[in-house]
Simulated assay, not measured.
Amino acid sequence: MSAVTPSALRRSLVAAGTAAVLAAALAACGSSDSSMPGMDHGTHPSIAASTGSAPGTEHHSMPGMDHSSMGDGLADAKDGYALTSAATELPADKGTAYAFKITGPDGQPVTSFAVDQTKRMHFYAIRSDLTGFQHLHPTMAPDGTWTANLTALTPGTWRTYASFTPETGSAKGEDFVLSRTITVPGTAKDTPLPAAAAITETDGYTVTVKGQPLAGMAHPLTVTISKDGKPVTDLQPYLDTYAHLTAFHEGDQAFAHLHPETKVTGDNGGPDLNFQAMLPKPGNWRLFLQFQTGGSLHTAALTLNVS
């Protein structure tokens, strides 16, 4: 029997247009996977400059929104807006501050940002082998300089991402993800990407992912969280949702940000979280799921293969 190509499969799904055919494409991968070495849970406290929300400034994301309009996050400039930083190197094996600015079409620093998921700026750092994930919420000085306090970085090439929404100007209300690369000097040792898996564990929790997204198509994805064989039902809101899911593409580090559709109703989320996943490229994606219980933030990582 001849193999079905990803493009042929996508055409057949679109042509069929039925839930039955879409469900037939769902297939969970089956091996276990552990959290990546060097992973940071992003537990740094935020200061009011990055968290406060004045009346009328909240930027609301619809349930399930994947922010696909932001692109793949691999450029440092888009539509006249740019991520700038004087830093091209950061020291190895110790915490360090990374300073950057967002400039607008007029070349001046942007200082007015809408609040998205309770923050005015989401900042990420990840190594080229997709280890060392950090998700931070930096603070902004009056001159538009943001400072992200990174935990220790291992030698190698890292990419930093700034996710934001201008509150004023030509791109008011538009979501952006811009990125730059930095070098951490020293002997770099790459960690092979773990194989695709449907299950991973972190901090005693078991995270199971069901669904097999197809590149360039919105597709259902369900995440189930359990502990000691029992469903977890005490998920607490984190960034105005029950889970924060970020994905990075193997090879080029393309960025994707997914939101659960599950409505927040208090400190009783779980065990199932439903997503509409839109991953733009085929290949392996490294997923980082952040969720909170008992006031503690947990980060689970697994590899998902996209056809």
Rank of each mutant, 00 (worst) to 15 (best):
K189C: 02
P192D: 01
P192M: 01
L193W: 04
L193I: 14
A197Q: 01
A197P: 00
E201W: 03
T202P: 01
T202H: 06
G204K: 13
G204I: 11
Y205R: 09
T206F: 09
T206L: 10
T208K: 15
V209Q: 12
V209R: 14
K210A: 15
G211Q: 05
Q212Y: 06
P213Y: 06
P213H: 06
L214F: 08
A215T: 06
A215G: 08
G216P: 13
M217H: 03
H219T: 15
P220Y: 08
L221G: 02
V223M: 12
I225F: 06
I225W: 05
D228A: 15
G229M: 12
P231G: 12
V232M: 11
V232C: 10
T233L: 08
Q236W: 10
Q236H: 11
P237T: 11
Y238P: 03
L239N: 11
L239A: 14
L239T: 09
Y242N: 04
Y242K: 06
A243F: 03
H244N: 05
H244M: 10
H244L: 12
L245S: 02
L245I: 09
T246V: 14
F248V: 06
F248A: 01
E250M: 03
E250F: 03
G251N: 06
G251W: 07
D252P: 07
Q253R: 15
F255Y: 15
H259L: 09
H259M: 11
H259G: 00
E261D: 10
T262C: 01
G266C: 05
N268V: 11
N268Y: 00
G269H: 01
G269Q: 02
G270Y: 04
G270A: 05
P271M: 12
P271W: 11
D272V: 13
L273H: 04
M278S: 06
